[in-house]
């Protein structure tokens, strides 16, 4: 359903220097698939996600979604950012309502759906608080609910749990899998945590250091629904993590840390 075809991106700096960020990336993601993109920081993995989102235009190549070429953002592809990007002047309810209002949902229906979503991300009772009054984990829950509100068929998650402490991160990973199990949206998930990628994904795409190229795609053949506690003891899980970590190390070899 998502087809990334020979996408490259070169940024032009103010001094007219050309910085290649992505180099000839091709990748196909099937409907309902959970794919993680894993790479060292600065390898352009977030840029790739922004290109799929239609927020950034590629320098070469194209992205198509269901056969349609991506030329800009669309409610079909919902982003979730590491920085949450919540609207600070809106309450939790207001943030979740935003997309419903843009979709022209009648107010009563929108309110009901927003409350339902807020309950789903375990924030019932927090509807009237402002984002600044919430913890990082709660903010990301609001951001996920805000994006789910307009029913995108694809979720584009840009290191969504990267700014959270280990405990919160684990809880949100579990909750994300729970939500995903219900309607199996297509997810493109950028992260630099190998364990997170293996735990969540059907396939893990590894990238090289900048300018980012595809390095290797690893299918994660672990049963679902997954439980973190069980997986940590599972030999196959450990093998995936160790194998991919070795692969990442070899990507870094010779390059300055």
């Amino acid at each position: 359903m998502i087809a990334i075809e020979a996408v490259s991106k070169t940024f032009e700096t103010e001094k007219r220097r050309r910085l290649p960020a992505l180099c000839d990336i091709s990748l196909a993601v099937a409907a309902g698939e959970f794919v993680s993109i894993l790479g060292p920081s600065g390898c352009g993995k977030s840029t790739l996600l922004y290109i799929v989102g239609g927020f950034v235009a590629p320098s070469a190549g194209a992205v198509t979604v269901n056969g349609q070429r991506v030329t800009g953002p669309s409610p079909d592809r919902g982003p979730v950012f590491q920085e949450f990007a919540l609207f600070p002047w809106k309450t939790v309810l207001g943030n979740v309502m935003y997309g419903l209002q843009r979709q022209g949902v009648a107010r009563q229906q929108a309110l009901a759906r927003a409350r339902e979503l807020i309950a789903m991300v375990h924030l019932a009772g927090y509807e009237n608080l402002y984002p600044k009054e919430l913890s990082g984990g709660m903010k990301q829950r609001v951001a996920i609910a805000r994006t789910l509100a307009y029913r995108p068929s694809i979720l584009l998650m840009d290191e969504p749990f990267g700014a959270l402490d280990a405990h919160t991160r684990t809880r949100l990973q579990n909750d994300l899998l729970d939500i995903w199990e219900r309607d199996r949206k297509t997810v493109l998930f950028v992260t630099h945590s190998v364990e997170e990628a293996v735990f969540l994904s059907d396939r893990v795409v590894t990238m090289t250091r900048a300018p980012g190229r595809l390095k290797q795609i690893i299918a994660i053949d672990l049963p679902r629904p997954r439980s973190r506690a069980a997986l940590l003891l599972d030999r196959r899980f450990q093998d995936y993590v160790v194998g991919i970590e070795r692969l990442m190390d070899s990507a870094d070899s010779g390059a300055p840390a």
Binding site: F55, P73, P75, A85, G99, R102, T147, Y150
Partner: peptide, 10 residues
Amino acid sequence: KLAWSAQAAG
């Protein structure tokens, strides 16, 4: 990213 979030929402 604030503007992107809004544009993606339609």
